Amino acid sequence: MTATSKPRLLSLDVFRGATVAAMILVNNPGDWGHIYAPLEHSAWNGCTPTDLIFPFFLFIVGVSIVYAMESKAEVKANHSKMLWGAFRRMLILIVISLVTQLLFHPGFAHLRFPGVLQRIGLVYFISTLIYLKTTQKTRDVLLGALLVGYYLIMAYVPVPDTGKASLDPETNMGAWVDRMVFSTNHLWSESKTWDPEGLLGTLPAIATCLLGVRVGSWLKQKNNHDAVKVSWLFAYGIIAIVTGLIWDLFFPINKALWTSSYVLYSGGWAMVALALCFWLIDVQGHKKPAMFFVPLGVNAITAYVLSNYIPHYITNKKYFGGGNLYQLIFEPYIQPYVASALSGLLLVFIIWALMRILYKRNIVIKV
């Protein structure tokens, strides 16, 4: 736990905070049977606004790597310490995820090994290693290689179980790798045969983070005016979106597989969103309307972890009359879809209030 000291890019904190708020909202509806379509994930191929949240976060991780490490990275003697710090953070995120599961579902027999925090940790550590040990030109080449290489693996390499390449949920190469490495006892509980945060999908997820690194390096340049940076960031974002849509024609946009087309499509929208935030907040100075999201952005991981705990006391605990808070406050009085969404918003505000207390005391909890 540390006090904030270095100046931060306010638009990045706002973008991160809005992403965390959206993540909390879509993960905690009052009633899973009544969810507005934009607040649901795609059944398989395709992309809803909800499907953009996780890649936005990994993109932001990439931008943050540059802002946090650029000055220290210039001295190679610092690299070992920085890599150890990144490795330690990765381990802590993995442990937090596993401990959270064990608290709510005791026992190791069906403990899920892949997960959101696990992917964030792995991507963060590997991207930090790449950032510290390569030039931007090398990172650009590696980004392209990850996207093309993953496409070739998924679309053309025969899966041992079936003898042919597949992009279906249970028969794709990523699902096979996860079953071989983790066994079916330790995969996503809804399927037991594949996992949306699987091991092979970490490769294109790294590409998403490297897009963020590229954008962070671009924004940190001092030889371009902010207006020029915003214009090019918008342009690159639109190009990435269009390229992703073209690639979608033969390698479908798919969050669960984290396809290469999905990396470009979601990364393009992340560039557009960050460009808009940067222009409005850091360039034009419209800060007050966006300040709501800053407490969530400054303590993003803390907010996310709490969003796994607090709902337990809202949805699982029985209160007056034998109902949970959703059943007591929302369900009897409001149309089901509205009630379900309002319940999720209530949780966002509860966690925001807790993060605001930390923010007002200038506290950042770091893992």
Rank of each mutant, 00 (worst) to 15 (best):
Asp161Gly: 11
Asp161Met: 09
Asp161Ala: 14
Asp161Pro: 08
Asp161Asn: 10
Thr162Ala: 04
Thr162Trp: 05
Thr162Arg: 01
Thr162Tyr: 11
Gly163Gln: 09
Gly163Asp: 09
Gly163Ile: 11
Gly163His: 06
Gly163Ala: 07
Lys164Val: 15
Lys164Thr: 15
Lys164Cys: 07
Lys164His: 15
Ala165Met: 07
Ala165Thr: 09
Ser166Cys: 05
Ser166Tyr: 10
Ser166Phe: 12
Leu167His: 11
Leu167Phe: 14
Asp168Met: 06
Asp168Ile: 03
Asp168Pro: 00
Asp168Ala: 07
Asp168Ser: 06
Pro169Trp: 14
Pro169Asn: 05
Pro169Thr: 06
Pro169Ile: 06
Glu170Lys: 10
Glu170Asp: 15
Glu170Ala: 15
Glu170Trp: 09
Thr171Arg: 00
Thr171Lys: 02
Asn172Ile: 12
Asn172Ser: 05
Asn172Cys: 08
Asn172Phe: 12
Met173Asn: 01
Met173Gly: 01
Met173Gln: 02
Gly174Glu: 04
Gly174His: 04
Gly174Pro: 00
Ala175Lys: 02
Ala175Trp: 08
Trp176Asp: 00
Val177Cys: 02
Val177Phe: 03
Val177Ser: 01
Val177Tyr: 00
Asp178Pro: 03
Asp178Trp: 07
Asp178Met: 09
Arg179Ser: 03
Arg179Lys: 14
Met180Ala: 14
Met180Tyr: 05
Met180Asp: 02
Met180Phe: 05
Val181His: 03
Val181Lys: 03
Val181Ile: 15
Phe182Met: 13
Phe182Lys: 08
Phe182His: 10
Phe182Arg: 07
Ser183Asp: 13
Ser183Asn: 14
Ser183Phe: 02
Thr184Leu: 04
Thr184His: 05
Asn185Lys: 12
Asn185Glu: 14
Asn185Ser: 14
Asn185Met: 11
Asn185Asp: 15
Asn185Leu: 09
His186Asp: 09
His186Lys: 11
His186Trp: 02
His186Thr: 09
His186Gly: 09
Leu187Phe: 10
Leu187Pro: 05
Leu187Thr: 10
Trp188Asn: 03
Trp188Gly: 00
Trp188Cys: 03
Ser189Ala: 08
Ser189Ile: 13
Glu190Val: 05
Glu190Leu: 14
Glu190Gly: 12
Glu190His: 12
Glu190Ala: 15
Ser191Tyr: 14
Ser191Cys: 01
Ser191Gly: 00
Ser191Trp: 11
Ser191Ala: 13
Lys192Gln: 13
Lys192Met: 11
Lys192Asn: 12
Thr193Asn: 02
Thr193Ala: 09
Thr193Asp: 04
Trp194Asn: 02
Trp194Pro: 01
Trp194Gly: 01
Trp194Phe: 14
Asp195Ile: 06
Asp195Tyr: 08
Pro196Phe: 11
Pro196Trp: 10
Pro196His: 11
Pro196Asp: 11
Pro196Asn: 10
Glu197Trp: 02
Glu197Asp: 12
